[in-house]
């Protein structure tokens, strides 16, 4: 059984602030879902290679050529960012004094 503290810890790792009864609900549901996932342990897969992708038999290469980025597209992308100024994206301070 997963504890309330564990649920809070995972939420913190995932950068999600849980609200109201979410901690209690997720605690119960995570236990059910993780119990269901236990079926994976019933099979001996020690000799099996993992499969990461279905199409990637070899790497996909291309020439290393720089392409000019459309200034119109840049403008559109900037307009959808939370904050910007003078052709720079603006984000809150990464290192704070607190």
């Amino acid at each position: 059984m997963i504890s309330k503290e564990q649920v809070q810890h995972i939420a913190q790792l995932a950068r999600i602030k849980l609200q109201g009864k979410e901690v209690e609900c997720f605690q119960v549901e995570f236990a059910q879902i993780l119990e269901y996932f236990e079926v994976l342990g019933k099979l001996d897969v020690s000799q099996v290679q993992p499969m990461t992708h279905t199409s990637a038999k070899e790497n996909s290469w291309r020439e290393d050529i720089g392409e000019p980025f459309s200034s119109e597209l840049r403008k559109k992308m900037f307009s959808q960012f939370s904050s910007s100024a003078d052709n720079f994206l603006k984000v809150p301070r990464v290192f704070s004094h607190e």
Partner: peptide, 27 residues
């Protein structure tokens, strides 16, 4: 702070099933 912004935005903006899957995936 930056982190508080993340926590609040995701806590309010994402729905229940999305939170559930992100958290179980993180786990």
């Amino acid at each position: 702070t930056l982190e508080e912004g993340y926590l609040e935005s995701r806590g309010e903006g994402l729905g229940e099933e999305v939170k559930r899957r992100i958290m179980l995936g993180t786990y």
